[in-house]
């Protein structure tokens, strides 16, 4: 096997939970190349699964962690809220998420008491906490903050993982037999 280009950098970023999308050059081009299978085989030998998402970005398959870091529920609640908000606006969700830059101070997360209460459950209390959360999301390649205007950010392609999770939840709830504990369709 010839030496795989940018292997060290790719591994270094993926192992920290980073997702590599078109904004991550030259690593993205290396993985998108026809040599993807070689990368996947290389990492498989180390016990790591390199995932190529259908929307064309890459990440390491996470372990089923029993001890979940608090950041994950925070990111999930943050993401579900912005999707819920977009849906209520009647906008196609993916167009809403990827079609614009967002101002941190203008996010809808504290505009409704319901959202505020949900965020409180994961210890996110104010805009400063949202900033911290977005910094973490930038580290894993889901948003881009640096290089944009003050307080500005935009969602990156790997945010599709949230959409995939939403579709999974919706489908599993439809597949589940009617049960008193199931929430009514909204």
């Amino acid at each position: 096997m010839n030496e795989l280009p940018h292997l060290e950098k790719i591994f270094d970023r993926l192992k920290r939970g980073c997702h590599l999308g078109p904004d991550d050059e030259p690593e993205f081009s290396a993985l998108s190349s026809p040599r993807f299978d070689e990368y996947a085989a290389y990492f498989a030998a180390l016990g790591l699964t390199l995932v190529r998402h259908e929307r064309e970005f890459f990440y390491f398959e996470p372990d089923n962690q029993e001890d979940v870091p608090i950041t994950l529920p925070r990111i999930a609640v943050f993401s579900y809220i912005i999707i819920d908000y977009a849906a209520n606006q009647g906008r196609p969700i993916e167009e809403f998420i990827f079609g614009q830059n967002f101002l941190i101070t203008a996010l809808p997360h504290f505009t409704l008491d319901r959202y505020t209460a949900l965020l409180r459950q994961v210890d996110v209390h104010n805009v400063e906490d949202l900033r911290t959360l977005l910094n973490r999301m930038e580290q894993i390649g889901w948003v881009k903050i640096k290089g944009l205007g003050e307080d500005e950010f935009r969602f990156l392609r790997p945010f599709h993982r949230v959409f995939s999770k939403c579709l999974e939840v919706a489908q599993s709830s439809q597949a589940a037999p009617p049960d008193a504990s199931q929430p009514a369709a909204t």
Partner: peptide, 23 residues
Amino acid sequence: LRRSSFIAEGAARALEKLQAEGL
């Protein structure tokens, strides 16, 4: 709209569950 509707439904269900049963 079909895709958006399913995405919205998934997010709404997740938030609903969190709201109802806690973290």
